[in-house]
Simulated scan of single mutants.
Amino acid sequence: MRRWHAEHHRSERAGWLRAAVLGANDGIVSIAGLVVGVAASGAGQDSVLMSGIAGMVAGAMSMAAGEYVSVQSQADTEHADLAKEKRELVEDPESELFELTGIYVRRGLQPELARQVAEQLTAHDALGSHARDELGITDTLRARPVQAALASAAAFTIGSLLPLAAVLLSPPARIEAITIAATLAGLGVSGALAAWAGGAAVARGAGRVVFWGALAMAAASLIGRLFHVSL
């Protein structure tokens, strides 16, 4: 007899991983673009640093609020669907059983077996069975607004520390160049880690993040040079 063994799948971390990766990359790119643009305009090191810190605080709050509202909307939809399903199970259980049976038939079970499975699952947990097999709602993938918001804000803050550190540690005349180099390196690492954690190709994941980060900083630098005003 085979022993039961625990399995861990990458989809189990899809919710928080998405928010964390998005937050970290946005923190790196947004603050790097901001400080590069301000530095390119001719601003001094103190002004560049303060602009970056202000951007970090505002960005982290914005990411948290945006992620919370987005995921809460998903949670509201899930709750509404579950409430509707719960009501239908009370009002017309036979139709719901027929519906569940049809789902299992379409997945490949014989009608008799599908009916038997539907009856047993309904007896065990009717709402949970319909949530999972009809609505596609599972505990693993349920919307968790607070978790997503905190992960996004924390990741944004952590990501933004890289370009801020580059500004703080750079010679005033080299802020732009060093920030760009540090940011591209950081994006490569974050993109590779995100791809690895999600089971994707590491080189491809790193490459696409670096590409878009470089494009963002190039645009910010161009804008800064067009409005070159020493502060």
Rank of each mutant, 00 (worst) to 15 (best):
S170H: 09
R106W: 08
V209N: 15
E96L: 00
L113P: 02
H130N: 11
I158A: 11
G198W: 12
H228Q: 12
L109N: 06
A126K: 02
A218D: 12
A203S: 13
E94P: 02
L135N: 02
L222Q: 14
R204H: 13
A166F: 05
G102C: 00
H130F: 03
V117D: 10
L184S: 02
G207V: 00
F156W: 08
G108K: 05
D92W: 09
R106Y: 00
Q120I: 07
D133K: 00
A214D: 12
Q120P: 05
H228P: 00
E99Q: 11
A131M: 09
E176Y: 04
A155Q: 08
L141D: 14
L121N: 05
E94C: 01
T157W: 08
A153K: 08
V209R: 09
A218C: 07
R225L: 12
A200Y: 13
L141I: 04
V146F: 12
A214M: 05
S221T: 05
F227A: 10
F98G: 02
I103N: 06
E94T: 04
A154L: 14
A166T: 05
A131E: 14
G191A: 02
L161S: 11
T140Y: 11
E96G: 03
L215M: 12
A166M: 11
G205F: 01
E119V: 03
V229K: 14
G224W: 06
T183G: 06
V229D: 15
R225G: 03
D125M: 02
G199E: 14
W196E: 15
A173L: 12
L226N: 08
L141Q: 13
